[in-house]
Simulated assay, not measured.
Amino acid sequence: MRARDLCQALDLPIVSKNTENIRSKLKRLVSRGILVETEPGLFTQPRP
Rank of each mutant, 00 (worst) to 15 (best):
L42K: 14
L10F: 15
R4K: 10
P13I: 00
M1A: 13
V36I: 15
V30G: 03
N18L: 05
I14N: 07
R28L: 12
K27T: 01
A9F: 11
M1Q: 07
N18P: 04
G33W: 11
L29E: 13
Q8E: 13
P48Q: 14
L35T: 02
F43W: 13
V15R: 13
V36T: 13
A9L: 14
A9Q: 14
I34P: 00
K27D: 14
V15W: 05
F43G: 04
L26S: 06
L29P: 02
R23W: 03
V36R: 15
N21V: 04
L35E: 09
T19P: 01
K25Y: 10
K25C: 08
C7K: 00
G33P: 09
E39K: 14
L10I: 02
D11H: 13
E20F: 03
K17T: 08
G33S: 05
S31M: 08
E37V: 03
T38S: 15
S16I: 08
D5S: 11
R2D: 10
R23N: 06
L26T: 04
E20R: 10
L35D: 07
E20W: 03
P48D: 14
R4N: 01
N18F: 10
R32D: 12
P40N: 07
R23C: 00
I22S: 00
P13A: 08
T38I: 15
I22T: 04
G33D: 10
G41H: 03
I22C: 04
